[in-house]
């Protein structure tokens, strides 16, 4: 149901998932607070480089980038006109301010850079691997359990929802804006929740019967190798460069 189109062979698959996850988080933390435009462009370059190495499929990539940029587009429609500052251009009462354009540009560049890094390093892992890597990175065990469980059953419940909505459509249900639609959708949703609840009770009993004692064991072995060290070093070098540029340039560029 929710296939992950970005999980495919690339150079990054050779790198330990824990290292990839930690690196993605570190990069996000370094890039998110940037205020200097050249540094942001460098961040975008870094993100694009990582993305090219991870060789993503073209169409899904476009779709994901479009989804992120819709919010950015919304900001572009509003922010340049409403930010106070030096006027860049004026039509009647509408004025575009330089500060507003700069703010929007900053947000767009950073946003896209971070999405590229995330697509390259994290979206290229399947959900269970992310869960197990999080556990080895000392995430709270209950949280990891929830994540693995949710990831496992999201597919099952999504196909159940599809069955329900097909059944409703076969009976002539057409969604409109009225109480009947809301009541029908709510009943379907309620049915989905009730079934999920009953399934959870069954699964719990089945797992307890099989001796489950609170943690999933993974057959995947995570090993760090020299390649990982090389990757971390080069990424750290790039990040140091970006942060140095930010520090040197200051926000007023």
């Amino acid at each position: 149901m929710f296939d992950q189109p970005f999980v495919r062979p690339s150079l990054f698959q050779a790198i330990d998932p824990r290292v990839r996850l930690a690196c993605a988080a570190l990069t996000a933390v370094c890039l998110a607070p940037l205020k200097n435009l050249p540094a942001c462009w460098l961040g975008l370059a870094l993100g694009l480089t990582l993305l090219i190495i991870s060789r993503p499929p073209f169409l899904p990539l476009l779709r994901r980038l479009a989804a992120v940029n819709i919010f950015i587009l919304f900001l572009w429609c509003v922010t340049p006109w409403t930010t106070p500052g030096t006027v860049l251009a004026q039509w009647g009462i509408f004025a575009v301010s330089a500060e507003g354009v700069r703010l929007s540009l900053l947000a767009s560049v950073k946003s896209n850079a971070l999405v590229c890094v995330f697509l390259a390093l994290v979206a290229s892992m399947d959900a269970p691997t992310v869960g197990h890597a999080l556990e080895r990175l000392r995430c709270p065990r209950k949280l990891v359990f929830l994540f693995l469980f949710t990831g496992r059953y999201a597919h099952v419940l999504a196909s159940e929802w599809r069955t329900l909505s097909v059944a409703a459509r076969l009976r002539g249900f057409r969604p409109r804006t009225d109480l009947h639609t809301y009541r029908t959708l709510a009943c379907l949703l309620g049915l989905l929740l009730v079934r999920a609840y009953e399934r959870s009770l069954r699964v719990r009993e089945a797992m307890l019967l099989r001796g489950f004692e609170g943690r999933f064991r993974s057959v995947a072995v995570f090993r760090t190798r020299p390649v990982d060290a090389l990757f971390v070093l080069s990424l750290l070098l790039c990040l140091t460069g970006i942060v140095w540029m930010e520090w040197k340039g200051g926000p007023h560029v």
Binding site: K142, F145, L146, F149, T150, G151, R152, Y153, A154, V156, L157, A158, W161, P175, T181, Y182, L185, L189, L192, L193, A196, Y197, R199, S200, L201, V203, R204, M207
Partner: peptide, 19 residues
């Protein structure tokens, strides 16, 4: 935990429903 996990999956699916 398992109940919450599966209900959280149901909400995950529910948030994909367009109304």
């Amino acid at each position: 935990l398992m109940t919450v996990g599966i209900l959280s999956a149901a909400f995950f699916v529910g948030s994909l429903i367009h109304v």
